[in-house]
Amino acid sequence: MEFTILFLATAIVMLIAWRGQRPLALGLFGAVLIACVATYLHHATDTLKLSF
């Protein structure tokens, strides 16, 4: 579900960047990027089985 929301948020940021106000697009982009990093960290809890 979180990925659907992230795609939706990205599409909304694109629409605001194209039609809306620049500061709003910048702020929302920052929020989406932080959410992406948080999602990555949430999913990056598996142990890496490195070969060295």
Partner: peptide, 15 residues
């Protein structure tokens, strides 16, 4: 997540 970040790449060029 990688697809989302590819899409996020596009915001800069749109602006």
């Amino acid at each position: 997540l990688q697809r989302i970040l590819f899409a996020a790449l596009a915001v800069g060029p749109i602006l």
